[in-house]
Simulated scan of single mutants.
Amino acid sequence: MNAHTPAPSILDSCGVAPERAREILGEALAGADDGEIFAERSESESFLFDDGRLKSAAYDSTEGFGLRVVAGETAGYAHSSEISEAALRRAGQSAALAKRGYQGVAAEGPRSTNSRLYGEDDPLASPDFAAKVALLQEIDAWARARDPRVVQVMASLSGERRIVEILRADGRLIRDVRPLSRINIQVTVE
Rank of each mutant, 00 (worst) to 15 (best):
G119H: 10
P127C: 10
V164I: 08
Y59K: 10
A32K: 09
S156W: 05
A86P: 00
A130E: 06
L167C: 10
K99F: 03
L136D: 00
L97T: 07
E36Y: 15
L67T: 00
I24M: 06
P123K: 00
S13Q: 09
M1S: 15
G15N: 08
A7M: 15
R116L: 15
G159P: 06
E40H: 12
A169M: 10
N184V: 09
L29S: 00
K99I: 06
L54P: 01
A71M: 06
S61E: 13
I183E: 03
I139G: 00
F129C: 05
I139M: 04
G31N: 14
A134V: 01
W142K: 11
S181A: 04
D34A: 11
E45V: 03
A3F: 09
L124Y: 06
R53V: 09
A71N: 02
R146Q: 14
I37Y: 02
S42H: 15
D122S: 08
I37Q: 02
V133W: 01
A87L: 08
E27K: 11
A107N: 10
A21H: 00
R161Q: 10
L180Y: 13
C14G: 03
D122P: 02
F47I: 03
P148S: 12
G64S: 08
G72K: 04
A57M: 10
W142P: 02
I83R: 05
M1Q: 14
R146V: 06
V133N: 00
G101S: 03
E19D: 13
L54H: 08
R149Y: 08
T74K: 12
E190P: 05
L97C: 03
H79C: 11
D50E: 15
A71R: 01
A32Y: 11
R182I: 09
A58P: 01
F49T: 04
S181W: 04
G159K: 06
P123H: 02
L54G: 05
A28P: 14
D34K: 02
E43Q: 10
D128E: 01
D12W: 05
A30W: 07
I174T: 05
L173V: 05
E82Y: 10
L67N: 00
K132E: 02
G26M: 03
R89L: 12
M1H: 15
F65G: 03
S81T: 14
E120W: 09
E43K: 07
V153D: 02
P8C: 07
S80A: 15
S156E: 11
T5L: 14
G15F: 09
D122G: 03
Q186K: 13
G104F: 01
V150N: 00
E165R: 04
G26I: 01
K99E: 01
I166Y: 03
S56G: 15
L157Y: 11
R162A: 11
D12P: 00
L54C: 07
P18G: 05
A125Q: 13
R116M: 14
A21G: 02
D170F: 13
S126W: 13
G31L: 09
D176T: 12
A57E: 14
R100M: 11
N184G: 11
I37D: 01
I166C: 06
G26S: 11
E138F: 09
T74H: 11
R182W: 14
F129W: 15
N184Q: 12
E45H: 06
G26P: 08
R161W: 05
